[in-house]
Design a protein around this nucleic acid. Sequence first.
RNA 1: GGUCACGUAGCUCAACUGGAUAGAGCACCUGGCUACGAACCAGGAGGUUUGGGGUUCGACUCCCUACGUGACCA
Length: 627
Amino acid sequence: MSRLAAQASACGSSRFAVPARICCYPSLSSVQQLENSIKAALSAAIQQAFGAQVPAEQLTLQPTRKDFAGSFTLVTFPLTKTLGKGPEQIGQALGEWLVANEARVSGFNVVKGFLNLEIADREWVRLFTELSQRPDNAPVPTGGPQHVVVEYSSPNTNKPLHLGHLRNNFLGYSVAEILKATGATVTKANLVNDRGIHICKSMLAYQEFGHNETPEEAGIKGDHLIGKYYVLFEKHYREQVRQLETEGVASDIAKRQAPMMLEAQDMLRAWEAGDEEVVSLWRQMNGWVYEGFDETYATIGVDFDKMYYESETYLLGKERVEEGLQKGVFFRKDDGSVWVDLKEEGLDEKLLLRADGTSVYITQDLGTAELKYQDFGYDLSVYVIADEQNYHMQVLKAVLKKLGKPYADAIYHLSYGMVDLPSGKMKSREGTVVDADELVQEVTDAARQATNELGKIEGLSEQEAEHLYRMLGLGALKYYLLKVDPKKRMLFNPEESVQLQGHTGPFIQYSHARIAAIRRKAAELGLSETADLASLPALHETEVGMVQELARYSSVVTEAANTMSPAIIAQYAYDLAKAYNRFYTEVPVFGEVDETKRNFRVALSAQTGRMIKASMRLLGIDVPERM
RNA sequence: GGUCACGUAGCUCAACUGGAUAGAGCACCUGGCUACGAACCAGGAGGUUUGGGGUUCGACUCCCUACGUGACCA
């Protein structure tokens, strides 16, 4: 078995159900080379000191905890059986051997079953030199998928985007960027749910109460205008239901028989039949919504390479259903409806096509999956969809498998948790939904206020300042939503989301602005950012810490890509900024008299700035030169 | 009723996939701006990791069970 194949199968046990093929074939970055050579040395040490064969791959090396001296730690407990010695005795013997025979190891200490290894300064300097030479946009190859489609956002056209969509959009965008950073070709797709009963409801209310008003006339964004009529529909519809109920009609019947509901259904049928008037109204109203969405997308900084519209794909699903019937993997019930039996897969019987031949959600999803595959021939297709649809996505995959589709296994549901408010769940009926446009405005305002209070941006033009406020506001918001493990349900606290201190986006942005100031001053002084480090004296503890943080970048990107978790990048960017701020307060840069040291610190700052910027870019967050 | 997630400091979240004394931020207390940007840094206090059992040299992590929360399927 090849090395790559061995690693691929070893990765199959990931706690995420990621298809094996997108798993890790780690590139040998400089740190990994360092780790590998230490492992090899340890293996040799075991051979020499104890006469036992323990392959390097079996040794587990981990980062040393902060409270102990050293950078890498070998856990010696697992060796006690094979070597027949106590954990401390083993650690001591191996440590001594390494210090004597491996130049990269400069010292060690043993605490119980832990052998902590200190790495020679010149090794860190060598590592840093390598890292600084790497172009910022150089891919971090993982051997993962090469052609990826990431579908995200996927809004309905009957109301504007809300907080839940924001988590979706930021996640989708970020995951796509992270996968790109591994060298994959990524297509960002948006499947717009532009047809169905919901949009007919808005259309109906508009016909009734709209007096042909346009977004321009109303002075509101198109998506908000349509949302207004959707709410109007709901309001009048509920009145009708209540009316019927007071007349003694049973609740569920009243809901079905209310005149407005019947009219909306009539309208949907007319739409499907291609009724000119209905279709033309539908075009006009959806057009307004798209203008509104485009504006929001542009503001929050997300983009798409490919748009899909359900109105154009929903019929394709019926062909898949027909295919399944022919292959005998689906069956038709007496009433004419089509079903699939997924009991063997641990699921249930699932409806695929209604008795009247109309499609259900899954029908069109079957069609869209096929279409996407035809369009892009992906080896990974990511669906960024909330976890309330876990079952639905399982069914989709299982059905495609039954159909024998080669791309079924390449489908990955990036299932993220819903966003709660301090008051509980967001409910449109109770008016607790947080509107995306309003929220972006609020975080921008908060950033404006805080920035003006601190008064550090004199000299920026009005336009530059506004650009900065939005960058900071969005930085706070995006970071707040992305720092949490995607699969976990999260709480959105409005006050915390605009915070600028602590574990926040602006904290990281601030660190970058500080570094930018250093770079400006270095340029003024005519100092180079690429230092000659051959004669560098002993490193400060915070400098070693910085190099170690910088060196983690590629493995962090790899892990984030494998688990599709921007949260890992978010944590890393914070760690970087935190480590830099510590370095910044503990050692002087321009006050340093030793020229080599000073140049190294300039170079270290510059490199940190680049990596903060690169990491934040993977989150879709921009960083300022000043703030 | 069934299936699947989740439960960690007062609050919001981490924990390198089974390793050391479970870490950050917010809030609270203390100290640091005549150094290159204090949106920062250092320190303090705060935990029976929901309860109970099991596997292991070692469990927040794996298994069983109870409770709680949430989602989905009829």
